[in-house]
């Protein structure tokens, strides 16, 4: 991938914060968009599953937490009000992030929110040695699990943005060439 310096906004800051634009080949751009849309799809479906199930609540998941933040998650779960807020933010957050990623709409905000949400999921159930969970997993994990990989994939998408080429952000912020 070729990185081209396009414009130097603030010379005093030196080269570290230079405004950079990435130029991708068609294949590179396509796969970045496919990755973005796939992660968006996953978020959106997780959001809708919760929205469409009247019995859904994060309470069991939160109570099942382990690790240094488990007290925090259990506190949320044990108070009906904070639980309702957590449920609402989780459900609608997933849907908004999913749509943002799929459509490439405000995708920087969507990606940062997605990373934050995934960090919460990861930290509530870290696959560390000695931690056991009630929730069954479909694979075998040590420290790295699929949540962490999805999180890193979002970091990659943040560093290699594509929504101003393919996505609503092209209409909102103008195209990047």
């Amino acid at each position: 991938m070729q990185i081209v310096k396009k414009e130097i906004r603030n010379k005093k800051r030196g080269t570290r914060n230079m405004k950079k634009t990435l130029q991708y080949s068609n294949a590179q751009l396509s796969m970045l968009v496919v990755l973005r849309v796939s992660i968006g799809w996953h978020f959106l479906y997780e959001g809708f599953v919760k929205l469409l199930n009247p019995n859904w609540s994060s309470v069991g998941y939160l109570l099942d937490s382990e690790g240094f933040l488990s007290g925090f998650f259990e506190t949320i779960a044990s108070d009906p009000n904070s639980l309702a807020v957590a449920d609402f933010l989780n459900m609608w957050g997933l849907i908004a992030i999913g749509l943002g990623l799929m459509l490439g709409c405000l995708s920087r905000i969507a990606i940062i929110s997605g990373i934050t949400l995934l960090a919460f999921y990861y930290l509530s159930h870290p696959p560390f040695i000695g931690f056991k969970y009630a929730m069954p997993t479909e694979g075998s994990y040590l420290i790295v699990n699929k949540i962490l990989i999805e999180l890193f994939a979002l970091v990659v998408l943040y560093l290699f943005p594509s929504s101003r080429q393919i996505g609503f952000d092209r209409l909102i912020f103008g195209p990047k060439s």
Binding site: L103, G104, G167, P175
Partner: peptide, 12 residues
């Protein structure tokens, strides 16, 4: 531009 902006809408 419009086509590229809306390219992923069919996936939605």
């Amino acid at each position: 531009d419009v086509l590229k902006s809306l390219a992923t809408v069919p996936v939605v």
